[in-house]
Amino acid sequence: MTTLTAGRPAPTGTRGPSHVLADAITMLRRNLLHVVRYPGLSIFTIGGPVVILVLLVFVFGGTLGAGLPGVDPAVTGRDAYLAYVLPGILLITIAGTASGASITVAMDMTEGITARFRTMSISRAAVLAGHVVGNTIQAIIAVALVLGVGILAGFRPTAGPAEWAGVAGLIVAISFAVSWVGVAMGMQSKTVETASNLPLLLSLLPILGSGFVPTESMPAGMQWFAEHQPFTPFIEAIRGLLLGTPLGSNLPLAVGWSVVIAVAGYAWAMALYERKSVR
């Protein structure tokens, strides 16, 4: 495994896949240790969606749960709204983890740690991959915990083993893609404060999609945006897998958007890393 030793010259040649993998594992371990030592961000990532879930379901759910599409007609009131809104809450949880990745990267940038990594014999892709994989793991754990809270609150999915496998795969793909965007936002930000605020834009997308209310209830312009932005097929695909509602084109759209966002986030992050490496 590659040892992070100061003073090594930056690599001039192409490193083999085994070296890149070893570097990535080293950076992943560092990222996970950072999470253990500073758990505040993880607690906020989980606590925020749980608070939103409790407020929406137990304060507004009795009214909002009437006549929702895709919900068993025998289920009414709060239980109906819980079934409808939980997939959107899960996506807010994933979007919220981007803030953790962004802040961590920005801290490394402002404290000079990333600059030090550039002087070492470490794969540049591995430095960012450690952040991404670590953040993806955090997102998966956060989603599992929020889903557990939802089940305790009365959420009753109808998914079978195949559907649960689909949900798990989709959660991993979306979390991975969003993590790359979060890392890129952290590299783009000049301060930690900016890095903490910029990813909040991602948390708005489930709200401006079908996360809390059907898109049909929105004004025409907002409805068009809601139906064509990536988080709506994310939400509808997870909702369909968990509750057995018609998937239509939502599942392939969700997979496609995950790939597009991951590739775009990777390209953005690597371009910023390369540009700042030559300064």
Rank of each mutant, 00 (worst) to 15 (best):
L170A: 03
I171W: 00
I171N: 05
V172F: 07
A173C: 09
I174F: 14
I174E: 13
S175I: 10
S175R: 14
F176Y: 15
F176W: 15
A177D: 13
S179G: 13
S179N: 09
S179R: 02
W180K: 00
V181M: 06
V183F: 08
V183T: 11
M187W: 07
S189F: 02
K190Q: 12
K190P: 00
K190E: 15
T191M: 10
T191F: 11
T191W: 09
V192E: 11
V192R: 12
E193N: 12
E193K: 13
T194V: 11
S196D: 09
S196V: 08
L198M: 04
L198D: 01
L198T: 07
P199E: 00
P199I: 00
P199L: 00
L200R: 04
L200T: 03
L200H: 02
L202K: 05
L202Y: 02
S203Y: 01
S203H: 05
S203T: 15
S203P: 02
L204M: 14
L204Y: 15
L204R: 13
L205K: 14
P206K: 08
P206T: 11
P206S: 14
I207Q: 07
I207S: 00
L208G: 03
L208V: 03
S210M: 03
G211Q: 05
G211E: 06
V213D: 12
V213M: 12
V213K: 14
P214A: 09
E216T: 15
S217H: 15
S217R: 15
S217T: 12
P219W: 11
A220Q: 09
A220W: 04
W224R: 11
W224E: 15
F225Y: 10
E227R: 10
E227S: 02
E227Y: 02
Q229L: 06
F231E: 02
F231D: 05
F231Q: 13
F234G: 01
F234M: 13
A237M: 05
I238G: 02
R239Y: 07
L241G: 13
L242G: 05
L242I: 08
L242K: 11
L242H: 15
